[in-house]
Simulated assay, not measured.
Amino acid sequence: MKTAVLTDLHANREATEAVIAHARGQQAESWVLLGDFVGYGADPAWVLDTVREMVSQGALAVQGNHDLAVAQGASPHMRPEPRYVIDWTRGHLDAAQIDFLATLPLSAQRGNQLFVHANAWAPQGWEYITGRIEAMRSLHATECRYTFCGHMHEPKLYHLSGTGKSGDFVPTPGVPIPVPAHRQWLVIPGSVGQPRDGNPAACYAMFDDEAATVTYHRVPYDHAAAAAKILAAELPQRLAFRLEDGQ
Rank of each mutant, 00 (worst) to 15 (best):
A224Y: 02
Y221G: 04
L186P: 13
Y204K: 01
A201L: 00
G164R: 07
M206I: 14
D197S: 11
V214L: 11
V219S: 04
Y158Q: 11
A202M: 07
E210A: 13
S161T: 15
T163W: 03
P173G: 09
V179D: 02
G190L: 13
R183S: 07
Y221K: 05
A201E: 05
P195C: 12
I177R: 00
G193M: 11
A224Q: 12
P189Q: 13
P220L: 06
P220T: 07
H223A: 12
G174W: 08
D209A: 13
D208E: 06
V175N: 00
P173L: 06
A181V: 08
Y158V: 10
N199S: 02
D197M: 02
G174C: 09
P171C: 05
G193F: 08
E210L: 11
P200T: 01
Y158P: 13
E210W: 01
T172D: 11
L160E: 11
G193E: 12
G162D: 11
D222R: 01
A225C: 02
F207Q: 07
R196C: 14
E210K: 05
V175R: 03
A227F: 03
G193Q: 10
T172K: 10
T172S: 11
T172Q: 12
R183E: 13
V214E: 13
A211V: 06
V192Q: 06
A224S: 06
G190A: 12
S166N: 01
A205I: 12
V187Y: 06
P195V: 13
H223N: 15
Y216S: 05
S166C: 09
G198A: 08
P178W: 00
D168Y: 05
L157S: 13
T215V: 12
I188W: 07
T163V: 08
G164T: 10
H223T: 05
G193R: 07
W185R: 10
G164E: 10
P220E: 09
I177K: 00
Q194I: 04
P178H: 06
V214Y: 12
S191L: 14
P176H: 04
A181I: 03
A205R: 10
I177G: 01
G164K: 06
D197I: 03
D222T: 06
A205F: 10
Q194H: 15
M206L: 15
I188D: 09
P176F: 03
Y221L: 06
V192L: 10
V219D: 05
T215A: 11
V187T: 12
F169M: 15
V192G: 07
H182N: 14
Q184Y: 07
Q184L: 09
P173Q: 08
A224N: 04
S161M: 02
F207K: 03
P189C: 15
L160N: 04
D197C: 09
P171S: 08
S191H: 14
H159V: 00
D208N: 14
A205D: 13
F207H: 15
Y204S: 01
Y216T: 08
L157K: 08
H159G: 14
A224W: 04
M206T: 08
V219H: 04
P200K: 02
P173V: 10
N199I: 11
L157R: 08
V187H: 09
L186M: 14
S161I: 03
A205K: 08
P195A: 11
T215D: 11
G174V: 09
R183A: 07
S191G: 13
P220Y: 02
D208W: 04
S191Q: 14
A205C: 13
T163M: 09
